[in-house]
Design a protein around this nucleic acid. Structure first.
Lengths: 210, 210
DNA sequence: ATCCAACGAGACGTATCGTCTTGTCAAGAC
DNA sequence: GTCTTGACAAGACGATACGTCTCGTTGGAT
């Protein structure tokens, strides 16, 4: 925690400092691919660092050197690094209800996709034990998407389709919260019809009062 | 649920059938108490069967004999068996908005209570890897509460405070979904003010149209 | 061309798993 | 009152995965 490996950087909080410029991209990709394969085959609970290393044809140390946990590996495998948070944009046809239905239907499709569902559930669950992962997931994935909702809702607000006094952050949660709740609890199926109804109900609460 | 301990049932799918009538209630309580203590001290991830057994002064086999997983132990420790699902009732003062705010504020307080927060998060997370636990949690804890919401909303519907065409199951999710979303993602704090705003926004979408 | 840290491989000690064995004990059977 | 039975506490056991640590080897930086 307190020692600096290279004398040039005494402020480094972490113990060692591997040289990223010498890192093997080939090994990195093999590790991420192996992790994705294995999590699909055996699930996250049975996923082990040793199995990832074996499948990737890689020494265990190479994994431990660059990632703090198997969750971090899977996170990087699922979330491409080079996404620009500001580039995420919701459609804007001028009809807020139609646009929200389009987006929430797409979200429903994603959550029903087995390939995305398993890793997403695993990572979401792991945030309960791994606050650092939770922060990364929120910052890199969740918040950029939520901010896109806020921007779209603000446009609707300026167009007079949403009550000007409404807190858009809460408005957004009124839309995605129910979807998220059903997905997490598996109480009832996630369908396009459900997404549409949520939008209709939420919007009736968001439109300006006469 | 379906097995008979006496050898008269050869169709029992499981291997053995321990005799529940000879079970030691003393050991059972010691195990549940130890599990609760340890999960508070070290968290669910570091909770082990061996540690529970040691703390409880119990042989490991006694745990393996009666519970399938550490999650099942914690579940039983958190959820008293003798609760009547139908006995859960939301307040009904005739004012649906006030009643919902009362209940959601109480839920906020529960979720902010560290003693309840840790085990609840652990169990919720574990459902991603343990479908059986998820089913038990839904059936014994979640659904009884959600049904209480539905009953209260139906009363409001019959009193003309909620649109008669509204699907009450989705209405309920519009209320609890946002709370649940904030709790899970830890994006923003859960406050009474937030609960109130959610109720106001949701209800404006649920009131009958003029 | 040289250097050196990352690399693949895997040995190592530790921790926990879930099963199995042993002797003790209390409740029901006789 | 004695006998039988099965849960119990304790812990040995082999298996598995952890995270650290050598080993040579190798490929990118200079």
């Amino acid at each position: 925690m307190t020692d600096a490996p290279t004398p040039s950087s005494p402020t480094s909080p972490s113990a060692k400092a591997p040289d990223a410029s010498r890192r093997s991209e080939r090994s990195r990709r093999a590790i991420l691919d192996a992790a994705l394969e294995l999590v699909g085959e055996t699930g996250f609970a049975k996923l082990t660092i040793e199995a990832i290393a074996a499948r990737a044809g890689v020494g265990k140390q190479t994994i431990y050197r660059w990632w703090p946990s198997k969750a971090a590996v899977l996170f990087e495998a699922c979330v491409p690094e080079g996404i620009d948070p500001a580039a995420i944009e919701l459609p804007d046809t001028g009809d807020i209800a139609a646009d929200l239905k389009t987006v929430l239907r797409a979200t429903v499709d994603d959550l029903n996709d087995a390939r995305l569902d398993a890793p997403t559930r695993a990572l979401t669950a792991e945030t309960a034990n791994d606050p650092e992962l939770g922060r990364a997931l929120t910052e890199k994935v969740l918040e950029p998407q939520l901010q896109a909702y806020v921007r779209r809702l603000r446009a609707a607000q300026e167009a007079g389709q949403v009550d000007p006094d409404t807190d858009l952050r809460i408005a957004l949660e009124l839309l995605v919260g129910p979807l998220f709740h059903r997905w997490q609890t598996r109480t009832l199926p996630l369908t396009h019809a459900y997404a549409d109804t949520v939008v209709d109900l939420a919007l009736r609460g968001l439109v300006p009062r006469p």
